[in-house]
């Protein structure tokens, strides 16, 4: 059977049936995958598409989560009304994180500065207990959409799936546009891109802001899913997790972001089903990442692209 790109529309429709076959535990894992898909899509914009070694993702994630949590707990807003503000807070943080890059900071220097940004934000959550609950954490009420309480994992799933599909399609369209091509040009050769008239500075800010917006929305979903935010959720372990997702899935690949999220989030849960493996998760997890990177340096998405060219990332529209 010859595949065409309509599969990208059919797959989410098929996924709609998942609650019919999953219990709430497995549904929670699927919901967590959906959260990490957005986190990876946003992260990949800066690291994979723009080619910058920036790790401020965890800051965007935390800002989005806490923005959503604070708006629901302190202002009593329903969760669905906090999703876009959480994204906007992430976008603002993205603009701030792009400043070092605008000043010519690159590579390891940019990496360490953006890592520091994440740590700075974690400390901010700890040091503002009136807003964030500080070290004791912030309990977020059950999410609500137009008066409909998302009391089960199944309810959350449909809302999360809608958000993820919209964001992924929008990101795909953006990458297929001249903006996506500009990101690619900057990634390949920043000086050549500037010489061709691409305003690289503006695109840096745009990429970081978009990344912050998407990851901020992911953070808002995380707050709704987990229900209790703690500064420890947004530490360096989270950076490693995000990085592993895009490395395993494929740098600069939307499909890779999806595949990486599924693999990295689901693997610990698969291990959980074998009680004799309890405690050996790190060995298996670390080993699996090494194997994927050794044998598929361009990630799992490159494997799919070999199977069928429709899975290749595109920077043009039909």
């Amino acid at each position: 059977m010859k595949l065409n790109r309509s599969i990208f529309w059919i797959l989410p429709l098929l996924v709609l049936a998942l609650p019919l076959v999953l219990n709430q535990y497995l549904q929670y894992v699927v919901n967590l995958i959906l959260v990490y898909i957005l986190v990876a899509v946003g992260f990949n914009l800066v690291v994979g598409n723009l080619g910058q070694l920036a790790f401020s993702n965890v800051a965007f994630f935390g800002i989005g989560a806490y923005a959503s949590g604070i708006l629901t707990t302190q202002l009593g807003m329903p969760w669905w009304l906090t999703v876009i503000p959480a994204g906007l807070c992430g976008a603002l943080a993205g603009c701030a994180a792009s400043i070092p890059a605008l000043r010519g900071v690159r590579l390891f220097y940019l990496a360490i500065m953006t890592l520091a940004f994440g740590e700075l934000m974690r400390w901010s959550y700890i040091r503002t207990p009136d807003l964030t609950g500080g070290s004791m954490g912030l309990t977020v009420p059950e999410p609500e959409v137009f008066g409909w309480m998302l009391t089960t994992e199944y309810h959350k799933f449909y809302v999360f799936l809608f958000i993820v599909v919209v964001v992924v399609i929008a990101t795909s369209r953006l990458l297929e546009s001249r903006i996506g091509r500009a990101f690619l040009a900057i990634k390949n050769d920043e000086n050549a891109a500037a010489a061709m008239g691409i305003p690289t500075g503006q695109y840096f800010v745009l990429a970081f802001a978009l990344s912050g917006f998407i990851v901020g929305i992911g953070g808002s979903m995380y707050a709704a899913l987990v229900g209790h935010l703690s500064p420890e959720d947004f530490d360096l372990i989270q950076v490693i997790l995000h990085f592993a997702i895009i490395m395993v899935g494929g740098l600069g690949s939307l499909i890779g972001s999806v595949l990486g999220s599924i693999l990295i989030t689901a693997t610990p849960e698969v291990i959980r089903h074998f009680e004799w493996l309890v405690g050996s998760e790190e060995w298996i997890f670390g080993g699996a990442i090494i194997v994927v990177i050794l044998f598929l340096p361009r990630g799992l998405s490159s494997l799919l692209a070999k199977v069928n060219p429709i899975f290749k990332d595109r920077y043009y529209r039909d």
Binding site: N23, Q24, Y25, Y28, V29, L32, E153, Y222, L225, V226, H228, S230, E232, D233, I237, P268, E269, R272
Partner: peptide
């Protein structure tokens, strides 16, 4: 870790 902890608890319950 919270996300993993919730998964562990939900697996136990459901």
């Amino acid at each position: 870790a919270q996300a993993k902890g919730i998964a562990a608890a939900k697996k136990m319950v459901y």
